[in-house]
C-alpha cells in the first residue's frame, strides 16, 4: 500500500445514521481519527457504541452518511476489504480462534497481510516469514511464552491481548478497539493501557471503553454518545466539566 502521511484525519465518519424499525441506533454521528491520537468513544449502556463501531469497520452499512479512509470514500466497502486496506478492529466479546494455538491465531492474521491464500501445498506452519512476524507480535503483547497453548485455554486477559496482536498483525493504520479492557483485572488493564500508549504514535486509534479511569488516562479526544448521538466531544478536561455528560452518566447511575 502506498504510504500516505496525510495531514489531518486518516479516518473519518460523516453524518452516519442507522435505524432499526423506529429506533435510531446511530443519529448523525461524525468523528475523526488522527494518527498518533487516541479517540475515545464513551457512553452509557445501549448508547449505540458497538453499532457505531460496526459501521466504521464495515460490518454494518449505515442508512446515511459516509466513512472516509485516507481520502477515499469507503462507505460501501465490506469489512474484509476495509481490513485489507488498513482498518483493523477488535471485538467486545472476545473473538479468537479457540481451536488454534495462540501462535496460529496470530499467524492467520499475519497471513492475511502476507497473501498467497490459494497456496495448497506448502505447510504454513513451517513458513519462516509468517512465523517470524508472529513471534515478533507475540513478544510485543507479551504472549510469547504461551505461543503453543490452545487459545481457548488462555486466561481472559490474555485473550484480549491476543486480539490486539491479531489486529496489529494486519499492519493497520486505524485500530478500532471495542472495549479491549472489558473483563480484565486492574493489573491486566494497566498493562494493556501501557501497550496502547506505546502503540499510539503509529496508529489512529478509536477506543470504545467503559472504564473512565482508563479513558481519562489514555484519550486525547473523547466523544460522548447518548442514544446514538454525540452529545459532546473534546479534550479530557472539556468532557470532565461538561454538564450534559454528567447528567447522562448520573442518570445511568455512574
Amino acid at each position: 500500500m502506498v504510504e500516505q502521511r496525510t495531514i489531518g484525519p486518516v479516518f473519518a465518519a460523516k453524518n452516519l445514521f442507522k435505524s432499526y424499525g423506529g429506533l435510531r441506533a446511530t443519529d448523525n454521528l461524525s468523528l475523526q481519527l488522527e494518527t498518533g491520537k487516541i479517540h475515545a468513544l464513551i457512553g452509557p449502556n445501549g448508547a449505540g457504541k458497538t453499532t457505531a463501531l460496526s459501521q466504521l469497520s464495515g460490518e454494518l452499512q449505515p442508512d446515511e452518511g459516509q466513512v472516509w479512509f485516507c481520502g477515499q470514500d469507503i462507505t460501501r466497502y465490506s469489512m474484509p476489504k476495509r481490513a485489507r486496506m488498513g482498518v483493523a478492529r477488535s471485538f467486545q466479546i472476545t473473538a479468537i480462534f479457540d481451536d488454534f494455538t495462540v501462535a496460529e491465531n496470530v499467524a492467520v492474521a499475519v497471513q492475511s497481510r502476507a497473501g498467497h491464500h490459494f497456496s495448497f501445498w506448502r505447510a504454513v506452519g513451517r513458513d519462516k516469514g509468517i512465523n517470524h512476524r508472529t513471534n515478533e507480535l507475540l513478544d510485543l503483547v507479551g504472549l510469547a511464552a504461551f505461543a503453543r497453548r490452545r487459545a481457548a485455554d488462555l486466561a481472559h486477559g490474555q485473550k484480549r491481548q491476543l486480539e490486539i496482536a491479531m489486529a496489529l498483525a494486519l499492519e493497520p493504520k486505524v485500530l478500532l478497539l471495542d472495549e479491549p479492557m472489558a473483563g480484565m483485572g486492574p493489573t491486566e488493564s494497566t498493562q494493556l493501557a501501557e501497550l496502547l500508549e506505546r502503540l499510539k504514535q503509529d496508529f489512529a486509534i478509536l477506543l470504545v471503553e467503559h472504564d473512565m479511569n482508563i479513558v481519562f488516562r489514555l484519550a486525547d479526544i473523547i466523544s460522548v454518545l447518548v442514544n446514538g448521538a454525540v452529545i459532546a466531544s473534546g479534550t479530557v478536561e472539556d468532557i470532565r466539566e461538561n454538564e450534559d455528560v454528567q447528567k447522562a452518566y448520573l442518570a445511568e447511575g455512574y
Partner: peptide, 18 residues
C-alpha cells in the same frame, strides 16, 4: 489455515480481511 479459520469464527476472519 484459512478454511479452518472460517469454520471456527467466520466473523473474525472477515475482520482479518478474508
Amino acid at each position: 489455515r484459512v478454511i479452518i479459520g472460517c469454520k471456527q469464527n467466520e466473523r473474525r476472519m472477515r475482520a482479518l480481511g478474508y
